[in-house]
Structures are given as C-alpha cells and as structure tokens.
C-alpha cells in the first residue's frame, strides 16, 4: 500500500511536460523545427560557399572542405544511431518522433553538406564511392518518407479493424468450412478445391508480395473451375462456390495488407545495409585522405 500514500511526489513521477498529448506527425513536429534548422544550415553552406574564396579552388581538402566533411561524417554517424535509439528503451525523457523528424530533415541536408564538401569534384575513386552511397541512402530514405506519409491510411482502410491474425484465422475458417462443404462433390470438382485448401497464403515470392498479383492463385482457379463445372450436385456446388468467393475476398484483404506492409518495410532492406556500406566507404575515404596528407 505504501505507494498509494506517497505524500510528496517522488522524482520518478511524470511531469505533465513529458506526457506527449499533442497530436502532430513526425514531419510537422514542433512546427517544422528540424526542417527550419536543416534548411538554415543548407542556406548557410550555399551562401558561405559562394562568398568564401578558397585558393586555388573549393575542394574537400581545403579548410572549408574539411569543416563540411567533419560535419557530414559526424552527422552520418549520428543519423545511424537512430537504429539504436529506437530499440533502447532508456527511462529518461526522449521522443522517437523528434528523433525521426531530425533524422529526416538533417538527413536531407546531407545532400548539400556532402555535395558542397566535394567542391563538385567527382571521379572514379573511393571518395566519390562514399558520396554515391550517401546519395543512395538518402534516396532510399526519401522513398521511406513518402510511403510513411501516404500508405498508413490505405493500410488502415484495408484492414477494417481486423488484425493480421484475424485475417489468417478467417482464411482458416473458410478452409474448414470448404473441407466439409466439398465432401459431396465429384472427384473432378474436388481436385481444385483440395488445391485451394493446400494453398499457402504467404506463397508467391517477393514480386507477388509487392505487386499484390497472384496469377497462380489456387483459390481463384478453383472458383473459376467450379463456377464453370456442371458435374456435381448443384446445391452443394453453389455452396462451395460461395465459400470460394468468400475465401478469395479474405485472401485479397490479407494480400493487400501484406503488400502495403511490404512497401512500408522494403526500403529499410536497402537503407540499412547501404548505410553500413557507406560507413565502410567513409572510413576508407577518411583514412586515405589522412594517408596522403
């Protein structure tokens, strides 16, 4: 009972300030705070690049180039830390939304920081490899921002309050009903139904998952075959056809769900490995620069 009677608020009590009640997405966070910071930074770089006269010319090796390079490398490491921040549930106050917001806008600012760091001197070497990898990481991240901003609604509309487990359960329920309803059918009609029962709703590979097209769907095939068939008892067949069309609808919902989720996740399989490739190339770039100093 002790805690009930805590008279004086302990330090661990949450103050109102830390309770996230404002309803705003990561892009709009704190009135576009990070967009403004990152935009200001880019502007500063573009203007100072034009005003500062570096001899013989702007390149990565000048004092100005080193400054931008250091900022860029530090930023890349910090941006990578999001993956750790997201998973490390420390007990102090932080908001992953704020981190994401900063990650997105500061990440975009790397286009300017990185490119202006090069002094527009690109070539076929490890230095440009690091730049190119960085640009690819940013591009994949841009895709991520776009799908995060546009797809959640579609995901919500498609699932209509059902969970993924419930979608699978619904398909299994239709399978069980099909199994008993198909008993009176002729062997000729039973074969496609059995094929539909054996179908794995997850099968089809990455292309099918992303496109949402399953041309070899056994349930659709069974539906077509039985709708056209005249061999079994009409009443039993109508019931099976009805169940097959219901199962098809349930499958379509699940597949659309998986498709949207795949679109929301697939870019991470590019973004994250490329980030590590980038860090490797960046290390090579930095080491080689100091080696030739």
């Amino acid at each position: 009972m002790a805690s009930l009677f805590q008279r004086r608020r302990s330090k661990a009590t949450q103050v109102e300030r830390v309770r996230e009640r404002r309803h705003e997405g990561f892009l709009r966070y704190a009135g576009f705070r990070w967009a403004k910071i990152s935009g200001g930074l880019c502007l500063l770089i573009i203007v100072s690049y034009a005003l500062i006269d570096v001899t013989p010319r702007h390149n990565g090796g000048s004092w100005y180039g080193y400054t931008l390079g250091t900022i860029g490398a530090a930023l890349i490491l910090w941006l990578t830390a999001l993956g750790y921040r997201k998973r490390k549930m420390t007990r102090d106050h932080w908001s992953l939304k704020a981190w994401t917001s900063a990650h997105v806008y500061l990440g975009l600012s790397l286009i300017i920081i990185g490119t202006w760091h090069t002094g527009f001197q690109l070539g076929w070497n490890v230095h440009t490899l690091a730049w190119a990898l960085m640009m690819l990481v940013i591009l994949s991240g841009l895709y991520g921002v776009i799908v995060y901003a546009t797809l959640p609604q579609a995901l919500s509309n498609n699932r209509e309050q059902m969970t993924q487990m419930q979608m699978l359960e619904a398909i299994r329920a239709f399978d069980r009903q099909l199994h008993s309803a198909a008993q009176p059918l002729t062997p000729e009609d039973t074969a496609p139904v059995l094929a539909a029962l054996d179908e794995d709703p997850f099968a089809g590979g990455i292309a099918a998952r992303l496109s949402g097209r399953y041309p070899n769907c056994a349930t659709a095939a069974a539906y077509r075959a039985l709708s056209a068939s005249r061999s079994s008892d009409a009443e039993a067949r109508t019931k099976v056809v009805g169940l097959l069309s219901q199962k098809e609808a349930a499958l379509a919902r699940l597949r659309e769900h998986l498709r949207i989720r795949a679109l929301l996740e697939i870019w991470l399989y590019v973004h994250v490995p490329l980030t590590f490739a980038l860090i490797a190339a960046l290390s090579a770039h930095i080491v080689s620069v100091f080696f030739y100093w």
Binding site: S10, A12, Q14, H23, G25, F26, H93, K97, T100, P152
Partner: peptide, 16 residues
C-alpha cells in the same frame, strides 16, 4: 516510476 513518461508514446517514430 519511469521519468520519461509512457514508453508507447515515446517510442512511436511517426507521432501516431
């Protein structure tokens, strides 16, 4: 007892 506040909200990357 967690000073940072409810983890579900803190850990939401998009502010949903």
């Amino acid at each position: 007892g967690i000073a940072g506040g409810p983890a579900c909200v803190r850990a939401c990357p998009t502010g949903a």
